[in-house]
């Protein structure tokens, strides 16, 4: 996926990665490492927190703790790859795009997701996908962190 990102986008010069809190943050860092292994340097990596942009901000119960968005570089004119672990309804991505645009006007926004589980509720499509796993019900959890081995777990549920 990292190589695909490098090949498709404008190249390392204008490339930036932004992980969506919380699942996308570790994944964005991992992609940056792999790009660094190829290119010899890492693209800038930021994070967005979408709590303030949720379309159900007024009714969500209970409200998750807000973490700050942290984009320590100028997004104007750059190619920004939004990174999330699981792509489902597309609502999180919609909110992340809106949040990103409030930080400036990128030349292009791309979307990378490790797992696409289907079930979209908005017209949003990923540019880079690790694996497509159609899941009707149940939970799909992804772990990518220093604490243990990488794993994707599907839990059956209603």
């Amino acid at each position: 996926m990292s190589v695909e990102i490098l090949e498709s986008t404008s190249g390392i010069e204008d490339l930036t990665l932004v992980g969506i809190r919380r699942g996308g943050v570790a994944l964005a860092a991992r992609i940056a490492e792999e790009i660094a292994a190829v290119e010899g340097r890492s693209p800038p990596v930021g994070t967005v927190d979408i709590s303030l942009y949720r379309d159900d901000a007024a009714t969500a119960l209970p409200n998750p703790k807000i973490g700050p968005s942290d984009i320590p570089f100028d997004v104007r004119g750059r190619h920004v790859v939004l990174v999330d672990d699981v792509l489902h309804t597309g609502r999180t991505v919609r909110a992340a795009i809106e949040c990103l645009q409030d930080h400036g006007r990128p030349a292009r926004i791309w979307l990378a997701a490790l797992c696409d589980r289907g079930g979209r509720e908005l017209p949003i499509a990923p540019d880079f996908v690790g694996r497509t796993i159609e899941v009707d019900t149940g939970r799909l959890d992804v772990w990518i962190d220093a604490a243990g081995p990488d794993r994707v777990v599907l839990t059956e549920g209603e």
Binding site: L52, A57, A58, E98, Q101, D102, H103, G104
Partner: peptide
Amino acid sequence: RPVRKVPTLRG
């Protein structure tokens, strides 16, 4: 930020 506004309390 450049845009110092969030849509959270719209309405």
